[in-house]
Simulated assay, not measured.
Amino acid sequence: MTSSGVVTGVHCARGHNFSKSTAMFIDILAGLGVAGDAHAGKTVRHRSRVAVDPDQPNLRQVHLVASELLEELNTQGFDLSPGALGENITTQGIDLIELPRGTVLVIGDVRLSVTGLRNPCVQIENFRPGLLKQMVGKRDDGTPLLRTGIMTTALNSGPVTAGSGIVVQLPPEPHIRLERV
């Protein structure tokens, strides 16, 4: 089964900034992530994960956030623009959080494999007081629901621009629910 959505913005930051600047396009590099982005690499680049084990594989190469989440939070007064949560790709029309692990997102020639959920951290609270509480919810079964977007790995290389379509290719069943990576 496939479904579709659209890229509404692309973002990149060379430094370990909380937010990323909006760009005309981003270049995805197979096995690495976004060219020129601080989080690109075969091994982890997020500082907290490097401190634990710098040799672990980077399952957080490309970060995606739904524009619907930003819109919801903006109605609550948080004033979040695309890229504000540090995402590389802002999307519309896809319930990112509910995708199963192993889903492939096809954006033009680029294929991204969904690895898990981004875990919200204290930086979110420092960025906008009260935002961290909005990023952690509960699923129907009582387990935590992390709403700060999804993480993917780059299966191949190519450019991504705003306005690009996204085709969602679900993995074979049984589906595995996303957990934090």
Score class of each variant (00 low, 15 high):
P144W: 14
A40Y: 06
H175D: 06
P172E: 12
A35R: 15
V34E: 03
T161H: 14
V181L: 05
P171A: 09
G33S: 06
S4W: 09
L131T: 03
N88H: 05
S67K: 02
G149L: 15
G130Y: 02
M24V: 10
A66F: 00
P129N: 06
M1C: 09
G93V: 10
M1A: 13
T75W: 11
L29M: 13
G163V: 00
E71I: 08
E173I: 00
V110Y: 09
P174N: 03
G15S: 12
V181D: 03
L29E: 12
T161W: 12
T143R: 14
E72F: 00
L145P: 06
N156M: 01
R118W: 14
Q76D: 01
D37H: 10
A51Y: 01
S157N: 04
V62F: 07
P171W: 15
R180N: 05
G15H: 13
M135T: 06
G31W: 11
T115S: 09
L69F: 00
E72H: 05
H46G: 00
P82K: 07
E72Q: 07
E87M: 07
A30N: 01
N74A: 01
G158Q: 01
G93R: 09
V110I: 01
K42M: 12
T148E: 10
T143E: 12
S113A: 15
K133Y: 04
D95L: 12
H16P: 01
I89D: 02
G102H: 15
C121I: 11
L73F: 05
A84K: 02
R14G: 12
G33R: 02
L99D: 08
Q123W: 01
K20F: 15
R14I: 07
T148L: 15
N58S: 07
